[in-house]
Design a protein around this nucleic acid. Structure first.
Lengths: 330, 330
DNA sequence: TTGAAAGCGCTAACAA
DNA sequence: TTGTTAGCGCTTTCAA
């Protein structure tokens, strides 16, 4: 920066101003400075800037995984709008491990991110403590609560899942199983399962533990879940799934066993992955507003950082997508 | 840090050492310092550390998109091994726009990343210039070249695609079409297409431009590509695809048109997405070493940053995965 | 509108 | 092994 100042015949303060608040510098000097900057290929030091201004123009995120199209889409949208506003994204993955998440949060806080994004509202005590002590503006995405500890931009996983059950019950299904995601340490998966159980009760149907199983995130896990639930002497006539990947696993296993969907079995997914509409029959599922959440949370953060405007929780819709894998019980 | 020093009755230098090079401090003081750190919830300032040490322990990456399972997997692996070694990942997406990529690179360089990861070897002149002037250690992934301008960890897209064509020719196919990805500004897509064209020539087959089409990355693009190539009076008996998403689009369109695969048409994909083995028939494709590339490039960067060991280009295997969508020409 | 100068919170010589 | 001290390269008062 000193080189620029010397070359332009001004002080370093003027160089700094010309770069950061161009309006506070006369046109002539501004031009002189920017031309020298280009000429000398000057790239300012983010570290020095951060130290002096106490802003890094960096936002941190810790996500459970990137190997999930829905998260990836959300993060991409998040990054895109951050980037448009001059921020850069530090991403970190927790692998659904709360302890590891704490480490990742600490790492991001050490990097002095201007804000932090977390997935869900289920976190280790140390994570909450860390966030609170740091004073770093933090938002949660993907979750839902009346009074979340931090602003949360998400949707109501439980009631979305419940709507799917309503649909099944309307179609006459009485024995409904669920291949859920692993709910331990995952409030989204837990909410989806809870939503299903509550809806069942509301309709006066029994919640048969033998009809519920939890599985990790792969097609083969879906197949295995299907096998467990169907290999009973009184198998369900419909299966609700914790996500589309599990639902597709269910579909694949049904296909291989010669069980016709939806004629003999109804199946519902959750997420509305692009491929689900291409399947035949196309998967009935629930659409998750992943891009909207990513964009909205980035916008909220940017606005907050710009002028202190408060970050409000937002609840997005997660509409039911009726397609071909559900039908009235035979 | 001064608070810690005061509380522990030592100098700030000792605090710094106790935290960064524990071995250079006596056990007693080290314990005293770390206990005060915990007690006071001290979090070091990355900016100050970066300014003083000229290291940010941060690595930047600019990827075309995260909405591609293969990239996402690679980035996740990359992040995981960086993280294990104390580095944090700054990600940025270019949307396949070379000019935007330059901006993203500049942004990462301003953040003073210790190293940079780029996808492919096709970049704007300004990108190369920027990287070179900065002196920032940079690796490319996903590409392949004899003498790349920067170390490149990838695989030979062209010859992998060529092998697929060899297979088709062996099966007796003579009219082979291709639904390729958009090759403009994408050396991977271009290499795949070139590999196909060269293999065709090598086998003495004509390269019929009407049998080739380029499409973006979605199932519907694959369907449209299929339509274009098949709606000729002399349609191909086999279609090679630039990636699995396009290949699935081709499969879906064939299914909807009542064209039996592989009986009437052979189809080959590229990427080996998890779902391709679940389809019926399962997709014949090419496996891309996405996780290996992510892990290896992170390891190479970490090693280089630790002791200056040079980063060598590496070529990974991209094996042909023979499954059910290819068959001898009728 | 511009410049001088005092830090921002660390690390890394160098000395002790 | 520990402490002293001089920066790292900016931003930001404060004065001019």
């Amino acid at each position: 920066m000193e080189d620029i100042a010397r070359a332009a015949g001004v002080s370093t303060a003027t160089v700094s101003r010309a770069l950061n608040k161009p309006d506070s510098v006369s046109g002539e000097l501004r031009r002189k400075v920017t031309s020298k900057v280009r000429e000398l290929g000057y790239v300012p030091s983010g570290a020095a800037r951060a130290l002096a201004s106490n802003r890094t123009f960096t936002v941190g995120a810790v996500v459970p995984t990137l190997n999930n199209a829905i998260f990836a889409a959300s993060i991409e949208a998040f990054e895109e709008t951050l980037s448009k506003n001059g921020y850069t994204l530090l991403v970190t993955v927790s692998n659904y491990d709360p302890t590891h998440e704490v480490e990742q949060i600490r790492r991001l806080l050490e990097r002095e991110v201007d804000a932090l994004m977390l997935v869900g509202l289920d976190h280790h005590d140390d994570a909450w403590r860390l966030v609170e002590r740091s004073g770093c503006p933090t938002v949660a995405i993907w979750g839902h609560a009346k009074n979340p500890a931090i602003p949360c931009l998400g949707f109501d996983n439980a009631s979305a899942a419940a709507h799917a059950i309503d649909h099944l019950v309307e179609l006459g299904h009485r024995r409904i199983g669920m291949v859920a995601g692993i709910s331990d340490g995952n409030d989204r998966a837990r909410a989806r399962r809870r939503g299903v159980e509550r809806a069942l009760k509301r309709h006066g149907l029994p919640v048969d533990a033998g009809l519920f199983t939890e599985r990790p995130y792969s097609h083969n896990d879906g197949r295995a879940g299907f096998a467990e639930v169907m290999d009973r002497n009184d198998p369900p006539t419909a299966i609700m799934c914790g996500n589309d990947v599990l639902a597709m696993g269910v579909l694949f296993e049904a296909r291989d066993r010669g069980i016709a969907v939806p004629a003999e079995l109804s199946v519902i997914g959750f997420d509305n992955l692009p491929i689900t509409e291409q399947l035949s029959p196309a998967l009935t599922t629930i659409q998750v507003p992943s891009v909207a959440i990513g964009t909205a949370s980035a916008n909220a953060i940017v606005a907050h950082l710009a002028d202190g405007s408060p970050i409000h929780s937002q609840t997005f819709d997660a509409p039911f997508v009726l397609r071909g894998t559900t039908r009235a019980v035979p």
